[in-house]
Amino acid sequence: MEEFTQILLLFISTVLINNFILVRFLGICPFLGVSKQVETAFSMGLATTFVMTLTAAATWLINTFILEALNLPFLQYVSFIIVIASLVQFVEMFIKKTSPVLYKALGIFLPLITTNCAIMGLALLIPLNGYSFIASVVFGFGAGVGFTLAIVLMAGLREKLEFGDVPGVLKGVPVTLIIAGIMAMAFMGFSGLISM
């Protein structure tokens, strides 16, 4: 029971308190690039969550049973990036074969995920924090949910912003960044929620 509570707390803190985008600054590129419409933002979030959960599991196994067992820490970055790239490729082929509808929805976003620093950041944070296998998978899933939450909220705000009167020089990227700043302030409110 103790362990279960720990895992649950880890999930909540990953989604809200240490949100990957707004607190850790991971995955800013898709956050700014793919947040114009709620629907596409949601698909992106879904694809990222999927890959994140798998990446967490795969990199934990590789790090524990290959890199640490054979004492090869200097190969960490090279092997993680290869794992992520091949995982994305594999997921793409798998979805294409099994669910053409989902493939159509996620299609263009999947290849983009390889260079999403949230995924690589996740892979690097797991050995740094020394999570167990189950905790790693929950951490990966929670990171994905947090990512989806932030990007969908942002897309909702930006859809409204289309009708707003934004000064010319602030149109596009600048105003998006300022909104993200205000959202980050709102998320700071969660910081006292759980003390870990």
Binding site: F25, L170, T176, L177, I178, A180, G181, I182, A184, M185
Partner: peptide, 12 residues
């Protein structure tokens, strides 16, 4: 973090 976003937004 909030300051980072806002400063960069204004800078751009």
């Amino acid at each position: 973090p909030a300051g980072a976003f806002i400063t960069l937004g204004i800078l751009v």
